[in-house]
Design a protein around this nucleic acid. Structure first.
Lengths: 123, 123
DNA sequence: AATTAAACTTGCAAAATGCAAGTTTTGTCA
DNA sequence: TGACAAAACTTGCATTTTGCAAGTTTAATT
């Protein structure tokens, strides 16, 4: 039986932050959006080729879910499917940007702090 | 045996976005940060009381992990532990803000679009 | 029609999360 | 002090999500 595709994502609360995370706060969705936004990727195989190595079943699930939730659409029926961001998907750009900025600021991990914490707490 | 707490989070790649998500891209971390940033929460039980109902073991794990990763610290040894954001934690504010903006923009879910998609795709 | 490669599925293992019920710790106060 | 209560934390097990490897289906191309 086809895995119930009609499942509505369950909202944990009405908080806008929580709601957003319920939609794209999984392990892969934002990376797919990143691929489309910054790397111009449009196809299944292009997404597959990203260095983070998503697996095929997950990629498939996410593409379906992102489509259902209105972040992306596609043209060209099966084989040569081309995905593109909707307005809603494009509206995630500020989110990705702020995440990227944060990531760049802290990319050289603070090993010093880690060492400190390990001493301080009884980990 | 105490669950290996020394596990270093595995980076999927060197992409700043990917790295950030590897740190706080789980289901709960950003909601805890939100609670501290916007609701002034500081204690275990305050976090527990949030409407999204995190469970105790997860909360505990996240607090430890966020501490290890330098997003939060605490004062006051066990009982009356008070958590607070570090500089690094505070630097997530732009991220939460952009997420919140997005969430508010789309809070009234596009049921119309959903209906459309359901017809279009053979879901 | 046969080939091929992109798109998608399946089955099972591992990891993360959810839930309910505990136990430990430490401030409070009789 | 020492019993008590409440905060902090643990444990065990069910469920869900993700990871991995190997498939099958589908549609362009020849």
């Amino acid at each position: 039986m086809k895995k119930s595709i009609d499942q509505t994502i369950k909202k944990r609360s009405d908080c806008p932050i929580s709601c957003s995370l319920d939609l794209v706060g999984d392990k892969w969705s934002l990376l797919i959006i990143r691929d489309m936004l910054y790397l111009g990727k449009t196809t299944y195989n292009e997404f597959l080729s990203s260095k983070e190595t998503i697996s095929t079943n997950i990629l498939n699930d996410r593409l379906i879910q992102l489509t259902k939730d209105g972040f992306i659409t596609f043209t060209g029926s099966a084989k040569r499917k081309k995905y593109e961001l909707t307005k809603k998907g494009l509206d995630l750009k500020p989110v990705l940007e702020s995440i990227a900025l944060f990531g760049m600021k802290y990319s050289i991990a603070d090993k010093e702090f880690l060492k400190h914490v390990k001493k301080t707490m009884k980990l």
